[in-house]
Each structure stands twice: as C-alpha cells, then as structure tokens.
Amino acid sequence: MDTIVETLTTGLPVLLLQFAVTLALHGLGVALYMLLTPFHEFRLVRAGNVAAGIALAGTLVAIAIPLAATLASSLVTLDILLWGLVALALQLLAFIVASRLIPGLRGMIEADNPAAACVLVGVQLAVALLNAGAMAG
C-alpha cells in the first residue's frame, strides 16, 4: 500500500501539470481557430445554427485528438508543449486548406448548411487522426 501512495504522491502532480498544459493548448487552438474562421461560431450557435454547431464541435474534437496522442506518448511536459504546438499548427493549416477547397464555406455555414459543416469536420477529423498517428510515432 505504501508503494501505491508513494507512486500517487509523485505521479499525480506530473499528471495534473501535463493535463493542464494540454488543456491550455486545446484552449489556444480553439481560440486561434475562431480567429481564423470568417464566421462567428458562438453567435451562430446561440441563434440555433446547426451547421455552426457541427463545425465547432468537430473542431473541438479534431484539435483534441492529436493533443491526446502527444499527451499519451510524451514523457516530459516540454515535449507535450512543443509537439502540441506542432499539432495545433497542422490542425489550423488543415482548416485553412479545407476552407479553400470548399468554395463558399462561410456562406454555407452562415446559411445553416449541415452538409458543408460535415465535410469540413470530416477533413478536420481525418487530418487529426493522421496527425495523432504521426505524433504517437
């Protein structure tokens, strides 16, 4: 029992620090995403726009997937921070590319077109899974 308590005593602070860093990275990623998007997700969601809700929910998950892989595969907090920033850059780049490949994305999201939001989320999740696989290496 002493070994379990000792392990918990030394491991829990590390876990909490690494989890906090990952949550902060996630928040940063979502904030940067919202700055990049030409539409205002929260305003649209509050107005009942389903497409905006799908796009925002997909982004939350797509940003979390590679960060989770980084968290799971890194031994030190600095690795999580550095590789987490790389993961965010790749995810944001995926959104930029997807928004260029889907002509009129802004108008479709603002017009509450869930099909457009689903395509956007599909691209984001596909890149997130590949990104996570690369991060877990």
Rank of each mutant, 00 (worst) to 15 (best):
residue 14 V to I: 14
residue 91 Q to I: 02
residue 33 Y to H: 06
residue 88 L to A: 05
residue 46 R to M: 07
residue 42 F to Y: 10
residue 82 L to D: 12
residue 38 P to H: 06
residue 42 F to M: 05
residue 108 M to G: 03
residue 89 A to H: 04
residue 83 W to V: 06
residue 49 N to Y: 00
residue 52 A to T: 02
residue 87 A to R: 01
residue 23 L to G: 14
residue 59 T to N: 02
residue 57 A to W: 01
residue 88 L to Q: 04
residue 102 I to K: 07
residue 21 V to N: 07
residue 106 R to Y: 11
residue 67 L to G: 05
residue 96 I to V: 14
residue 111 A to N: 15
residue 82 L to W: 14
residue 16 L to A: 15
residue 66 P to R: 03
residue 15 L to Q: 12
residue 58 G to P: 06
residue 39 F to R: 00
residue 43 R to D: 14
residue 87 A to L: 04
residue 61 V to E: 07
residue 102 I to W: 13
residue 90 L to R: 01
residue 24 A to D: 12
residue 17 L to Y: 10
residue 110 E to I: 08
residue 72 A to G: 13
residue 52 A to W: 00
residue 98 A to R: 04
residue 59 T to F: 01
residue 11 G to E: 13
residue 100 R to D: 15
residue 37 T to F: 02
residue 23 L to A: 15
residue 22 T to H: 09
residue 54 I to W: 04
residue 52 A to L: 00
residue 48 G to Q: 01
residue 57 A to C: 10
residue 35 L to E: 09
residue 96 I to K: 08
residue 17 L to M: 12
residue 32 L to I: 08
residue 24 A to Q: 11
residue 93 L to F: 08
residue 56 L to K: 00
residue 34 M to Q: 07
residue 59 T to G: 02
residue 102 I to E: 14
residue 37 T to A: 09
residue 75 L to S: 12
residue 42 F to C: 01
residue 15 L to D: 13
residue 20 A to Y: 12
residue 19 F to V: 15
residue 12 L to T: 15
residue 94 A to S: 10
residue 40 H to W: 02
residue 24 A to F: 14
residue 109 I to W: 02
residue 82 L to P: 10
residue 89 A to C: 05
residue 51 A to P: 02
residue 46 R to P: 02
residue 29 G to Y: 00
residue 76 V to Y: 09
residue 65 I to W: 00
residue 68 A to T: 15
residue 38 P to D: 11
residue 56 L to V: 07
residue 104 G to S: 12
residue 82 L to H: 12
residue 104 G to Q: 14
residue 109 I to A: 01
residue 31 A to H: 08
residue 99 S to C: 10
residue 111 A to Q: 13
residue 49 N to R: 00
residue 57 A to V: 08
residue 67 L to Q: 10
residue 28 L to P: 00
residue 112 D to Q: 07
residue 112 D to G: 06
residue 74 S to N: 11
residue 83 W to A: 01
residue 55 A to G: 06
residue 82 L to M: 14
residue 61 V to A: 08
residue 92 L to E: 06
residue 47 A to S: 09
residue 45 V to M: 02
residue 97 V to G: 08
residue 29 G to W: 01
residue 41 E to M: 00
residue 26 H to M: 13
residue 108 M to K: 13
residue 26 H to E: 15
residue 52 A to S: 05
residue 35 L to W: 05
residue 91 Q to T: 07
residue 16 L to V: 15
residue 65 I to F: 05
residue 102 I to H: 12
residue 103 P to E: 15
residue 98 A to D: 11
residue 70 T to Y: 02
residue 12 L to M: 15
residue 102 I to D: 12
